[in-house]
Design a protein around this nucleic acid. Structure first.
Lengths: 226, 226
DNA sequence: GAGATGGTCAATTGAATGCTTGATTTACAA
DNA sequence: TTGTAAATCAAGCATTCAATTGACCATCTC
């Protein structure tokens, strides 16, 4: 008597569950994070994730049915991309809850990322201030294609694998702030470690490019610097 | 070569997927929304949702394994509750993304909630200001047990089914702001409709009690007013 | 057109889920 | 102790889901 369990409410919940189902797969989360870097073709994401093309295609369609990605045809390619900043935010909320409550994650982080001796990473707001005052060099260590698809304004692009070779491009008197694909992308971790080994003052940006973009901060495109 | 697909990263994504899986069920979302109102026993939620006790128990354990709820034993009862405000935020993010991208939802909302001729609902911040200035009466139309478990400070509790009978308790010169369990809870919708029919000036709070609490605003407990 | 490339579709397999039923554990009360 | 209510566990069945395979479209180039 006290609870008028309405059917339309359950219908709404069912719709929410559909979206959650789309997120409930390691592979699809992998695809989503990749698409959060920028628009990609099926073949490209299949190769990058190690999935078969057919399998990747089906996962992408699953994501599209849930409204998390959109696709457009360009010639012979079908390009997928995340359907909005809210999707990146949703994944962020998922990540934060998982971090807070899943013990397994602490184990992985402690064992691999070894954050303990990492200086506090910089937040987006802090980076904005310091970059505006010319106090830091912003370094994007992702591959050039991803850099070209969008990056933090004024960032210098040196992919991690070229870093040792191109150290000369970095001014030595300013702190270097490195970022890559997201909070668990190892590229920036390794870049910071490598730079410190060479005597640079270096820190990580707390999160990656997708989060920067999703939070509404300005981005720059093109200017492939390799 | 360009993509060092690290195994620990996939392990993290697998953990995220586990959390998403826990959300990927209409029944579990229903349970979660109920627990977001306050602590409950297995039997209580089973009855309220129409699930069998064994089934509810298993769903609750699934949620607990994912870290979304916690449980404690009190005598012969096992009480479950959501494990943190971030869980409510996660569900909110899920809801917003679904609203924005799933066509099905527009259909349900348009057909049932009939929001079109609903005055703009009030946001939490607006309500805070107006309540502070004594401009509005805050009305909680949930059942007294849920009210007792926590409510907006200063709110008056009149369950929807008693509303007609107890209209006299509401001052007629001030606008009434009604809220209930969440953005898609019908109780507040119906209360507002009913109140307007009786000549009151009435509006809905945009969201419900769990969102109020999760956003860090003050809450009041006890004071069961029936 | 013919051929080639990029994606999708459809059918199949094995694994994982959801719900039911009945047995079992736990805490309390007589 | 014995009994009882609350919750969990375990087994079983039907459904759904993920990945593979091979066939099938769509678009561009020649």
């Amino acid at each position: 008597m006290a609870t008028p369990t309405t059917s339309p409410r359950l219908a709404m919940l069912a719709s929410f569950a559909e979206v959650a189902k789309a997120l409930a797969s390691t592979q699809r989360l992998d695809l989503l994070e990749m698409l959060a870097q920028g628009e990609r073709g099926v073949d490209a994401v299949a190769q990058a994730t190690g999935l078969s093309v057919a399998n990747a295609s089906q996962h992408l369609q699953h994501l599209r049915r849930a409204g998390l990605v959109t696709s457009r045809r360009q010639g012979v390619h079908v390009l997928y991309s995340v359907s909005g900043d809210d999707v990146v935010e949703l994944i962020g909320a998922l990540r934060r809850t998982a971090e807070r409550h899943v013990a397994e994650i602490d184990r992985i982080v402690a064992g691999y990322f070894d954050r303990r001796d990492d200086l506090e990473p910089l937040s987006r707001e802090e980076l904005l201030h310091r970059a505006r005052d010319g106090l830091v060099t912003v370094l994007d260590v992702r591959p050039p294609e991803e850099f070209a698809a969008g990056h933090v304004p004024g960032a210098l692009n040196i992919p991690l694998k070229d870093l040792k070779r191109r150290l000369g491009e970095l001014p030595q008197d300013r702190e270097v702030i490195a970022y890559c694909r997201g909070p668990y992308c190892v590229l920036a971790f390794e870049a910071v470690a490598s730079l410190r080994g060479k005597g640079f003052k270096a820190r990580r940006l707390e999160e990656g490019y997708p989060e920067w973009k999703a939070s509404g901060l300005p981005v720059e495109r093109g200017t492939t610097g390799t």
